Simulated scan of single mutants.
Amino acid sequence: MDKFTTLTGVAAPLHLVNVDTDMIIPARYLKTIKRTGLGKSLFYELRYNEDGSENPNFVLNKPAYRNAQILIAGDNFGCGSSREHAPWALLDHGIRCVISTSFADIFYNNCFKNGILPIKVTHEQLQALFDDASRGSNATVSVDLESQTIKGPDGGTISFEIDPFRKHCLLNGLDDIGLTEAKAGVIQSYETRLAAERPWA
């Protein structure tokens, strides 16, 4: 998993509440267990017209936001059915950070396990970020995980809270497998001792 330390870039404003995982990636695109290739189906029903052409009114199709790595969204982002494909699709599209007032628990946890930083802010802070993001490519937002701050284009700073363990994992690029591998020496010592004490096992 890639480390998350600091991220500076354009933030895309998604003025929608209760964005569920089916909206993030429709169920018909869940046939793969690969984490790559899902970005093209991200927000499919919103990004594309019935004939498959791009919807020019959807935020991620607008020139200023095509390469956005930060998504500013309304309340209760990632609700609905549990599917790890949702953060996979966001990450494959290039989104490394999602900022909202609230997240569905399963989606929130899945983000951390896949290298995406979900940040919770107040409604007032969210509105300020929406205002910043509305400027498009003329303004950038900086997210610093170490200092737990978000800086707007005018220098305004927002502080956010994050669980220390999750912060540690993101800063060091540790998913569940990485955490296990970090304990390889301890595991090997245990196995060696167990083999000596119980050779019949």
Rank of each mutant, 00 (worst) to 15 (best):
T8L: 05
T8D: 06
T8W: 11
T8C: 12
G9H: 13
G9N: 06
G9V: 08
V10P: 09
A11V: 09
A11K: 09
A11L: 12
A12S: 06
A12M: 03
A12F: 11
H15A: 14
H15K: 15
L16S: 13
L16Y: 15
L16H: 13
N18S: 12
N18L: 02
N18F: 12
N18E: 10
V19R: 12
V19Q: 10
V19A: 11
D20G: 08
T21M: 12
D22T: 09
D22P: 08
D22E: 06
D22S: 12
D22W: 10
M23F: 03
I24N: 04
I24R: 03
I24K: 12
I25D: 07
P26T: 04
P26F: 11
P26V: 02
R28G: 00
R28W: 00
R28T: 09
Y29S: 03
Y29D: 00
L30C: 02
L30D: 01
L30P: 03
K31L: 09
K31R: 15
T32N: 02
T32Q: 00
I33M: 13
I33Q: 10
K34Y: 12
R35A: 08
R35I: 00
G37C: 03
L38H: 02
L38Y: 07
L38M: 11
L38F: 02
L38S: 04
G39I: 12
G39D: 03
K40Y: 06
K40I: 12
S41G: 00
L42C: 09
F43M: 11
F43W: 06
F43S: 06
F43Y: 14
